[in-house]
Amino acid sequence: MTLFDLFKRRGSAPVARERLQVLLAYERQNRNQPDLVAILREEIMAVIARHIQVGQEDVRVAMDRGDTMSTLEIDVNIPNGGALIAA
C-alpha cells in the first residue's frame, strides 16, 4: 500500500451498504413464503421412504444462493444392509 492509497482509501461502509441491499432484497422476497428448503426436504424424504428405509438424519437438503445461479444439494445416506422396499 502506498502513502497515496492510505489517503484515497474508502471506508468499509459502502461494502456494508451493498451487502445489506443484496441480503434484504432476498429476505423480503421470501418473507411471506413458507420455508422452501423445509418443504423440499419433507417431500424428498417421502419419496425416498417409499423405496428405501431411511431415517430423518440420513437426508440432508441444502440450498446455496449464488449471484447468478443457486444450487440445491441433496445428500442421502443409505445405511448398509438397510432394507430396500420393493416398489
Partner: peptide, 17 residues
C-alpha cells in the same frame, strides 16, 4: 465523523435501505 469518512453507514444509506 466516522460516517463522513466512510467507516459507518450514513443516514441516507440506512433510510434508502
Amino acid at each position: 465523523a466516522r460516517a463522513a469518512r466512510g467507516e459507518m453507514l450514513n443516514i441516507n444509506d440506512v433510510l434508502e435501505i
